[in-house]
Amino acid sequence: MADGARSAVNERDELRQTVRATLSRISQTGELPTLPSVATAALGIVRSPDAEVEELCHVIRMDVGLTARVLRVANSPGYGRRHPAKSMQDAVVTLGLRQTCDILVAVCARQLFAPGPYTELLWNHSLATAVAAEEIARATRLVKPGLAFLPGLFHDVGRIAFQLADVPSFTTLQELVDAGEGTSQTFEREWYAFDHAQAGCILTEDWGLVPEQCEAIRWHHDPAQAPAGHVLATVVNAADAIAYAIGCGPSAKRPEDVSTAALGLSPEAEGALVERIREAFETQKQLIG
């Protein structure tokens, strides 16, 4: 292994160890936030090159609430079925394996965002960024649309981990950011020794996202630094900016390091894209919650 690659591996191992040890140490339960097992099972199935519809259906059927939710999405007007899907197999064929998995993970991820004023804002922001990332991927063809939804959804999940672990410290950090005293990444690094993007990368790695998606989460505030998944990080960064543009920012002020500039769209094209994202977000919000 080349020296550069070895040093990147060492750096990642060190980060993984620090994130896990710190979050476990400060959390009340001593455990890291996890996705429900049905979501990780679905991610595992979709990652496999031999993934089969029936296999995913079997996982979804184990949860009655999820079954109903997936059928509801597949039968929504956006998917243009003439006759409603009655079986899970129909629904999965309509949506496709990847999209079914994205919906399922989003429904499961909703549970991580426990009710609270800030978490509600953060959930809307995460869902809006996921929808925006997928739409940007479709419009620009920079990356496969199927790759973009989950890093958009989880780009700020590190913040949720910080909040779940220690609400008072998280609130103090947020108050300083809102007061314009500095950026959240700076304060997070000073306090936790890593920021929410780094924490999100390590958590989603554990949950079964592919490396390119994890890298995009890690570098969504600084896509130029991403050694791999550079383009996906750019897409998530732009999606983050658009989520603010449609009124789904978790704070009043948009961070200075998120922007749509790297997409190279004309103002008209960008305006049309933002409108499509606004509509798509409203639809997903109604379906997923």
């Binding site: 950090l173 300083l176 005293e181 500095g182 304060f187 000073e190 306090w191």
Partner: peptide, 12 residues
């Protein structure tokens, strides 16, 4: 040297 650490200590 960290503003956030000083703020958190003051809160604690």
């Amino acid at each position: 040297d960290s503003k956030v650490v000083r703020a958190l200590i003051a809160r604690n």
